[in-house]
């Protein structure tokens, strides 16, 4: 854990809802080293998901700089940002967000359609990703035929398949029971420790945060440590 994977410098994010302007993040600064596993915690409306979206390149800051893996992503255009996301970051959502018309392996293969890999190579990578999350035997099943935990594993395999260095997870266990949640968090821990992935998760659950190497608390758009 030496080189910073994520550098957030003096970032402000303002949303406009009609005539109203809502400042969600206020000059936030943060560094996440490569190989770190960070849990972002805080009350609703504190800006956790907004920060996660900015780190993942889903949104752009109103002011400030964001550098991920040495790339200033706040300066990228929409097309460049899409391309950057495809190659550098994997996403895991609370409600899995799998494509219901595709099988587990179809869902995992989706990000690879953006690469130049051959069909055979894609299938090989998909098999490896499903193996990592322990779902090889469910490859041909559609999401409605899987349990919540299995769906989230498929989502993690989809996030991993293009081998990004950064995983961002928004409440990855928010829809799961304790036991399944612990399994999923254990899996993320393995990915961090054994595969060197940098992971940032947003959670309300202190038990989930315990799986991370460190926990950052946000309140009213600022890191508590920073505010202090």
């Amino acid at each position: 854990m030496s080189e910073p994977m994520v550098q957030v410098h003096n970032v402000t994010k303002v949303y406009e809802r009609g005539k109203q302007k809502i400042e969600v993040l206020h000059g936030l600064t943060l560094e996440i080293p490569q190989g770190d596993f960070v849990a972002l915690m805080g009350p609703s409306g504190s800006g956790k998901t907004t920060l996660l979206n900015l780190i993942g390149g889903l949104d752009k800051p109103t002011a400030g700089e964001i550098t991920v893996g040495g790339q200033r992503i706040d300066q990228l255009g929409s097309g460049q940002l899409a391309n950057w996301r495809a190659h550098n970051v994997g996403f895991v959502f609370q409600f899995y967000n799998l494509m219901p018309v595709l099988t587990a392996e179809g869902n995992v293969e989706l990000p690879l359609l953006l690469t130049k890999l051959s069909g055979a190579q894609r299938r090989k990578n998909v098999a490896v990703a499903l193996e990592v999350v322990g779902l090889s035997d469910r490859a041909k099943h559609k999401p409605r035929e899987l349990s919540g935990g299995q769906e989230q594993r498929v989502a993690i395999a989809r996030a991993l398949v293009s081998d990004p260095q950064l995983l961002v997870c928004d409440e990855p266990t928010g829809d799961l029971d304790r036991k399944t949640a612990d399994e999923i968090l254990g899996l993320l821990q393995v990915l961090n420790r054994e595969h060197g992935k940098t992971i940032v998760i947003v959670t309300h659950d202190p038990k989930a945060a315990e799986f991370a190497r460190r926990t950052l608390h946000l309140e009213k758009g600022q890191l508590l440590e920073q505010a202090a």
Binding site: L58, A82, N83, W84, A86, F91, F93, M99, P111
Partner: peptide
């Protein structure tokens, strides 16, 4: 709409 947003998240361009 959420699925299309996920596709964009995964890196599929607007085009």
């Amino acid at each position: 709409i959420p699925e299309l947003a996920v596709l964009k998240t995964l890196g599929f361009s607007d085009g």
